[in-house]
Computed example of a mutant assay.
Amino acid sequence: MTNPYQSQRPAIGQRADAAQDIVYRWLKQYVLTLPSREGTFLTEAEVCRETGTSRTPVREALLRLEADGLLQIVPKKGAYVPPITETEIEAVMQARGLVEEWCARQAAGFGDMLAAELDRLMARQVEVQHDTVAFIECDRDFHRTIVRAAGNPVLADFYESLRDRQLRMGVRAITISGGRGDSVLAEHAAIVEGIRRGQPEQAAAAVAQHLARTLVALRLPIAAGWGSVAAERSPAVAAQ
């Protein structure tokens, strides 16, 4: 509810809230787009230097990100950004499969109308293919458009809750897998074709194939043994 007296609050409080929000957004973007195969530590001093703010908004922003589950504050060491685990990858991709395949079947009924919107999003994705983060953001918009078109607000809200994990995983997949961007565009085109033809099973099958190939790309670092390196650097392991 709008507070009619909000404009009368002290300016210093407004500046403090604004500083915290700026640091929070900067940190969240940094964490979500971190393609590192290993866990990373951040200190308050480092974040202060990067954002040009004092320790108080940095500390509050770190606590917010910890509440979001994106990092772990370790006393006397800093904020630990954990690596993406195989368990997390499997869980998120299973959830995506359940939601997106069902939604593709429902959305196929919109045919040309939805396909035209997806074509526009794909064209934008081609334009930003050189920018990994922007490419994955477009990827998210593409899939979210299909989910929303299915008309189930409960599933749409649940899907939104996966956004942060999808962004971080998507950056990882594109960064590590050479040529994955071109493959993603081709797989998206197959999904659009099923929708344009009004073929629910064709659209769902194209989504399933796309997610299966994405899962393969996400598993590459684990297959190469990178997970063991990250585990060795985990604060939980170090404390044992």
Rank of each mutant, 00 (worst) to 15 (best):
F110T: 08
F110A: 09
G111K: 06
G111N: 09
G111M: 02
D112T: 12
M113W: 14
M113E: 14
A115Q: 01
A115F: 10
L118K: 13
L118H: 11
L118Y: 10
D119G: 06
D119L: 00
L121C: 02
M122R: 11
R124C: 05
V126M: 04
E127R: 11
Q129P: 03
Q129Y: 06
T132V: 14
T132C: 10
V133S: 06
A134W: 02
I136E: 13
I136D: 12
E137G: 06
E137P: 04
H143N: 07
H143I: 02
R144S: 04
R148E: 15
R148Q: 15
A149C: 09
A149V: 03
A149P: 01
G151D: 14
N152D: 15
P153K: 12
P153M: 09
V154I: 15
A156C: 11
A156M: 05
F158R: 09
Y159Q: 03
L162M: 14
R163A: 07
R163I: 04
R163T: 07
D164M: 02
D164E: 10
M169F: 11
R172A: 10
T175R: 10
I176W: 13
I176K: 05
G178P: 05
G179I: 09
G181R: 05
G181K: 04
D182Y: 04
D182N: 12
S183V: 08
S183E: 15
V184K: 06
V184H: 07
V184G: 06
V184Y: 00
A186G: 01
A186T: 04
E187D: 15
A189Q: 10
I191P: 00
I191A: 08
G194Q: 15
G194S: 14
I195K: 00
I195S: 01
R197D: 05
G198R: 05
G198F: 08
Q199E: 15
P200F: 11
P200V: 09
E201V: 09
E201P: 00
A203S: 03
A205I: 07
H210N: 13
H210W: 05
H210A: 13
L211K: 12
L211P: 14
A212W: 02
R213I: 12
R213Y: 02
T214V: 09
L215A: 07
V216T: 06
V216F: 07
V216E: 05
V216K: 07
L218D: 02
R219I: 00
L220F: 03
P221Y: 12
P221T: 11
A223E: 13
A224S: 02
W226Q: 13
W226I: 04
